[in-house]
């Protein structure tokens, strides 16, 4: 994990550079600035966050003023302006999740990880943050860990997911209550009877 101090310079790995070129090629010539968001994402995947060296590297690559890149970075919360742990735990506390018990999820997460909102565990493994709606309200409450969503959480399942990660396992993402994706809890509630209109007895 890099810390704020040790990001003094940044450059894409050979592989990512290749990737970056492909991304830039998607946009018409002279419009390469449109690639700023995917490139920032690519850089963040490489080093975990988008510090000033990342901003300047990308600004130069896309021939734009660094301030324009910094505006993008500070606008979107998904770009980390500070280093994060190996697991970036983002707990949704917006309205639907709140109504469905995100308080309990958050509390459990803080307890299990032993850190407060916004902090990183001492071993540098977990960073816990509170976020706004992640668009999975139908499976509220939920949290996002790196690229995966863990949904239908209870304090217990929250604990189970985090403990598993601690042990180095990879818990299954998706709903933790057993339902399939966002299908109704307890199985389908429509189309149970497959006979049509007049066929009905």
């Amino acid at each position: 994990m890099s810390t704020e101090q040790d990001m003094t310079s940044f450059a894409f790995t050979a592989e990512n550079l290749e990737q970056a070129k492909k991304i830039i090629a998607k946009y018409p010539a002279g419009r390469q600035q449109s690639a700023v968001m995917p490139l920032l994402d690519l850089a963040q995947r490489q080093v975990g966050w988008t510090g000033i060296p990342v901003i300047e590297y990308i600004a130069e690559m896309l021939e734009m003023a660094p301030i324009r890149v910094q505006e993008v970075v500070t606008f979107y919360t998904m770009y980390n302006q500070k280093p994060v742990g190996q697991f970036h735990v983002q707990v949704c506390t917006n309205i639907c999740c709140l109504l469905r018990g995100s308080d309990g999820v958050g509390e459990t997460a803080r307890e299990v990880l032993g850190v407060n909102w916004g902090d990183t565990t001492e071993d540098g493994k977990f960073t816990l943050v509170e976020v706004e709606c992640l668009g999975a309200c139908v499976n509220a409450p939920m949290m996002q860990i790196n690229d995966d969503y863990y949904e239908d959480l209870t304090p217990e399942s929250t604990k189970a997911v985090l403990e598993a990660l601690k042990r180095g396992e990879t818990p299954n993402p998706g709903p933790q209550g057993g339902r399939q994706f966002s299908a109704p809890e307890g199985g389908p509630t429509t189309l149970g009877d497959l006979t049509f209109g007049s066929e009905k007895a």
Binding site: A65, P66, I67, R68, Q70, E71, T74, F75, Y76, T77
Partner: peptide
């Protein structure tokens, strides 16, 4: 060298 940094309530105009 100037830009709008942050978003909504946190937006601040500042320099790079």
């Amino acid at each position: 060298v100037l830009g709008g940094l942050g978003r909504s309530e946190h937006l601040e105009v500042g320099r790079y």
